[in-house]
Nucleic acid binder design. Structure first.
Lengths: 201, 201
DNA sequence: GACAATTATATAAAGAGTTATATATTGACA
DNA sequence: TGTCAATATATAACTCTTTATATAATTGTC
């Protein structure tokens, strides 16, 4: 189970369930997301298996917090996961399925609007990752060539997100261009469209 | 629930659960996957809701088959889904998480091997999609500019997969190049590595 | 002093997907 | 004749994830 391993990875420094949720949002939002209702029971399971241990600590506010930390066995398990083969899972992309079936609507304007929404979505995500990279570049003169090994890997993961998103945007533009060419061909000369005949009967 | 809508999309022609599983594998493998154990109960649910209806039919082999077909309500529901906003879901990419934490291992050779596996994986997937595109190009002289509207959308979805995969491969190459530069810098001149001192003590 | 926001943990219930298993029929091949 | 592969449906058990809800203390604000 990947969530377990990711929690082990995040627990290089001791953290509470609440902290871990924040770490997911701040550092891993482009890779994985997890809800508190999933994190808490998973931490308990990891503790039962001896991969993490916990101690109570004073809360800044609210009820007491429980800080979890990696055990030796936990670090070993993490290394096994990291040394193993890449774990691929096939994606489920509902929005691509929508596009796949959208010919059914026979409405290329709808397709155009749809591609616009898609492009905006990915552009926003790319802007967020670019901002992170810019911050990093400004803050650390070693970026990225001379980063410490750990940060280099984080950099790779960030670049993965940026490259994917940039490709999505380019694909949107390619598709919009193909659609536009088609719509122009339709509105000018050779038209067999049912709607076009209404213009000059 | 997206699987329901995808089944509605596939059911433009009547099909059995078994047929639909094949359609997922043949046409939608780069977009969505579904197991028979998920398809059968989903079809029953769709029938209870009046979005599809079914009739028994003779099986080519095996026990009798049940053919499902879209109802009017089903087609309407499909159109609502297709007219709605794109449904994005954040991906969970275990392999990127592995890379993110891989600095922990302090073994850049392992990182290199990992990136090699990743590249091979995506290259194989891209080859599969490219083959589909080549077949299509060869079979239909209208590809892609003058395709019927329906096929144009299928083409867009295929191109989405190809663009993503090509970007993944480029990212792999970029990362390998950065890693290589680093490994060469380490093996030549300025070395503070613990292993390097053993060469000439 | 009331109220909202934040910090913090916990659990129940539902939904989505995977794995394993059971059944039955037919055709091909050895 | 036996058995393997393909066609076809069905269900149980399990895992993973989301949504909703409950509790409780503290800080800042109006």
């Amino acid at each position: 189970m990947s969530l377990e391993h990711i929690l082990l990875g995040l627990l290089r420094e001791p953290a509470s369930g609440y902290d871990l949720k924040k770490l997911f949002e701040e550092r891993l939002s482009h890779i994985w997301r997890a809800e508190l209702s999933q994190i808490y029971p998973t931490l308990k399971r990891l503790e039962r298996r001896g991969l993490v241990d916990s101690r109570e600590a004073a809360a800044r506010r609210g009820s007491g917090r429980r800080l979890y930390a990696l055990t030796k066995a936990g670090r070993q398990e993490l290394h096994v996961w990291l040394s193993g083969p890449p774990q691929f899972a096939d994606e489920r992309m509902a929005w691509v399925a929508q596009l796949y079936f959208m010919g059914e609507l026979e409405d290329l304007d709808q397709t155009m609007r749809f591609l616009g929404s898609v492009r905006a979505h990915f552009a926003a995500k790319l802007a967020a990752l670019s901002a992170i990279q810019r911050m990093w570049t400004a803050a650390d003169p070693r970026y990225p060539r001379d980063l410490p090994v750990e940060d280099l890997h984080v950099h790779f993961a960030l670049r993965k997100g940026m490259c994917s998103l940039a490709a999505h945007i380019e694909w949107c533009d390619e598709s919009v261009a193909e659609l536009t060419a088609r719509l122009e061909a339709r509105s000018s000369g050779t038209s067999r469209e049912p709607g076009a005949a209404e213009e000059a009967p």
